[in-house]
Design a protein around this nucleic acid. Structure first.
Lengths: 241, 241
DNA sequence: CTCCATATGTGCGTTACCGCACATACCAGA
DNA sequence: TCTGGTATGTGCGGTAACGCACATATGGAG
């Protein structure tokens, strides 16, 4: 299973018309993305864009005092490095691998060239960017109004959607960094979910036991984001094998 | 002063090359934007895009329970309605006039056509969108980590940058809605700023007395956003008359 | 098997903000 | 001038999350 890699495991690449896909294919480079790897540093130049297939990447904003918050996640539904084609060559956010896996990368000049054709690739990337914007905006609202437990549920669901299994490897410490809350807060929330039988938590390994209940405990933010992704990028589901 | 309207009061329009500017000019329609006007409703179709000249528009996300939060502001530095050219024809956010004034609007099909030329207009709009994304992301972080007082300072500064005066008309109630906090919280924070001599507040009319101190009390978010706008859209300042 | 770094659980005082209630201040129109 | 609606100030109990300290559990390396 894991030894059969294909760019089509990334939904954006999979949604490309044959012409564009075959043009890009020889330039795509399979890369492993280990847990914790920093793909982009805040303010750094973007040398590649990434199309994750099995990895999940967090976009984090880190503040002067070291506190951080996740503003979006990118998995097999998307692309990492939108600021490249949006016009800035750098990004003010940090990109960290949140869940180890694989992805394909493309050299920055090649993507820019493809984008400048102003064809299907450009339109698809812009639609994805629009969906990503929605995710960021909803994160802002969520940070303002929702409890840690609700946000934990949202976060677990967003991660699950980008994985093929119902297990994820992630310590509470790391989740706390993503959500921008205390580790103890995550412990408490995760404990409640565990006692309620929704998840199993054991030293960095989470198994989801009852996804429907998780959705019930989550704030609306999860559904809003998911619905908007589905609306903007329906081909990802229609075409997906 | 107020009777002399020109599209060039909007920095994006002003930054356009002559060719593009003269092509768009006859299609631009001057519109008044009164306080509280809802330009876009969440989920609604976008009939026009707007280039504010003297008005300021808030992008709000409103939740099921009625609670809301501002995710970005758009003034004379930008354009309202980016989801039109990003690919979705609707927007999940609500756009409300936060500070009355004027702006120019352009019919949706005309903007789409201009965008599809894939020329300077498109590149400028995408760079602006990138800056807007930064603002949203920073708002998310700010909501997570900063106090009401810090956020009030940030909000005042962002508004000031989009006005030509040091006064703004805005009740504490409305500011509270924007920031997604209690009205009393704004009262308390504004009271502190007033006692410190940074602002004058009187029944919906704010006068900034000491802007440098306001910047000191603000969180870093203001500077981050401003710096990124300047980086991405330097022409707005170089060319601006 | 033992040890130890790492992960998780728990308690406690503090803080920021909430929701609510109500007092006060101000402007506009009758 | 009075009056009513709107804007602002203030107090109070409740709560969610914080920072910190420390106890406990666990899995892998030796």
């Amino acid at each position: 299973m894991h030894d059969q890699h294909s760019p089509k495991q990334n939904h954006l690449l999979d949604a490309l018309p044959v012409t564009e896909y075959t043009r890009l294919l020889p330039m795509l480079e399979l890369v492993e993305m280990p847990l914790g790897e920093v793909l982009y540093e805040s303010g750094g130049q973007l040398k590649h864009v990434y199309f994750p297939t099995s990895a999940i990447i967090s976009l984090l904003y880190v503040m002067e005092n070291g506190a951080s918050a996740e503003i979006a996640v990118v998995g097999n539904e998307g692309i990492l490095g939108i600021s490249l084609f949006m016009g800035g060559d750098t990004t003010p956010s940090r990109a960290v691998t949140q869940s180890a896996g694989f992805g394909y990368r493309l050299k920055a000049p090649l993507l820019k060239e493809e984008f400048s054709r102003a064809g299907p690739v450009m339109r698809l990337l812009l639609r994805y960017t629009q969906a990503l914007i929605t995710q960021m905006a909803q994160t802002a609202v969520c940070n303002r109004h929702h409890t840690v437990e609700q946000q934990l549920c949202r976060w677990l669901l967003l991660s699950l959607d980008r994985l093929s299994s119902n297990k994820l490897s992630m310590t509470q410490e790391l989740i706390a960094n993503m959500l921008g809350v205390r580790r103890e807060g995550v412990t408490e929330a995760a404990g409640k979910l565990q006692r309620a039988g929704l998840i199993d938590y054991s030293r960095g390994h989470i198994t989801i036991r009852d996804r429907p209940s998780l959705e019930k405990r989550s704030c609306e933010c999860y559904t809003v984001v998911k619905t908007e992704f589905d609306r903007l990028l329906p081909s990802l589901h229609v075409i997906a094998s």
